[in-house]
Amino acid sequence: MKAVTWQGKGTMTVEEVPDPSIQRPDDIIVRVTSTGLCGSDLHLYDPLAPYMEAGDVVGHEPIGIVEEAGPGVSALRAGDRVVVPFNLSCGSCWMCTRGLHSQCETTQNREHGTGASLFGYSKLYGQVPGAQAEFLRVPFADSLPIKVPEGPTDDRFVFLSDVLPTAWQAVEYADLRSGDTVLVLGAGPIGDMCARIAIHRGHRVLVVDPVPERRARAASYGAEVVPLDDDALLQVQQLTRGRGADAVIDAVGMEAHGSPVAEGMSNVVGLLPDRLAQPLLQSVGVDRMAALHLAIDAVRRGGTISVVGVYGGAMDPMPVMELFDKQVQLRMGQANVRHWSDDILDLLMEPEDHLGVESFATHHLPLADAPAAYADFRDKRDGMVKVLFHP
């Protein structure tokens, strides 16, 4: 089959790789019909390179058709249409039964001290073959995949794999009350969807982003937008009576390709052998902290910060005194997809496209265009916010 593979820092290629096969009785094989390019895939493209091996198949946002089911699968059969969550969760361990599917004890990566394994996401998270491919092996088939009906386009459901539950959890963690104002930092796919969900729930939403096209996209859904410049914090304070936002969602996270210092550190780490680079990446880190520091400055006293942007490695010194003095609540973590998916699916099944998912993707591309799409997405070219590949 054809699949997008990591071949080195900043190098993705489409290669012929072996087809997946049933390995356990509860496996299924899914023929992928659409699969997303995620902002966190860019971390593999650059900062997390020491945890990658040439030939790793990437991607974690698929929808497709069941081609084959193992003998232990009872909930699905060949021909069923399914969305596959990005994290591998068994659905029955202590963590999963408490709604913490991203911490699944069955697939935790104890060697690296990380949570549940992820499709297509480096040795840190299990080195599981990813979903930017023609076929995908999916374990735990009776509990992990989300069965969706035939009829609507892939775009109606594919974002159940990651974008929707990640943004949904971020808004839930923001702990918004009636009349609250939420500030969303970053209008990429996750930040954009956070804004849409919060607006759908009746909240006032401010969005900060440096890209005019992304700000315009958020504004079209009712968000009040603020350019990312030296006056951004002042503008937020002016829009919130000087108090700051009731909650701030950091949808930026680790974005080393926007900070010269962080990018330089990433380049240095990338030159080292993996056995040296891996611990250095975790202990020193290459994180760009501007978004999180802005979140701390922009949240009101007694407010909440919800961190949904992915951070990796050690972070710059945290302003703990400011967090304590402002009595800030801080919540974060990988999305527990299966904890939220049923509620989101109910919303998607309504006739009205409440969150604009059917027009959410800005680019639909063949898998062969993936190498160029990674570069364009990283550089925010051509109005690219969300890409769906069609194998």
Rank of each mutant, 00 (worst) to 15 (best):
T11H: 10
M12D: 06
S21D: 08
Q23I: 09
P25K: 11
V30G: 02
T33I: 06
C38H: 05
D41C: 14
H43F: 09
P47D: 15
L48H: 00
A49D: 03
V57L: 08
V58G: 02
E61A: 09
I63K: 01
V66M: 05
A69E: 08
L76M: 03
G79H: 03
M95Q: 15
G99N: 02
S102F: 06
T106Y: 03
Q108T: 12
N109H: 11
Y125M: 11
F135H: 14
R137S: 01
P139H: 07
T153M: 11
T153V: 13
F159Y: 09
A167F: 03
A170F: 06
G179V: 07
D180G: 04
I197G: 07
H200K: 14
H200A: 15
V207S: 07
V208W: 05
P212L: 12
A216R: 15
A218Y: 00
S220G: 11
Y221Q: 10
E224A: 10
L228Y: 10
L234D: 12
Q238G: 13
L239I: 10
V248H: 05
D250A: 12
G264K: 10
V269I: 15
L281C: 04
V284L: 15
G285H: 05
G285E: 02
A290L: 12
I296C: 03
G303H: 00
I305D: 05
S306C: 04
V307P: 00
V307Y: 09
G309E: 00
G309D: 00
G312K: 13
G313K: 09
V320K: 10
M321C: 09
L323Q: 01
F324H: 12
Q327S: 14
V337A: 04
L345E: 03
D346A: 15
L347A: 13
P351F: 12
H354I: 13
G356V: 07
E358I: 10
F360E: 04
T362H: 06
T362M: 08
H363A: 14
L367E: 00
A368Y: 06
D369H: 10
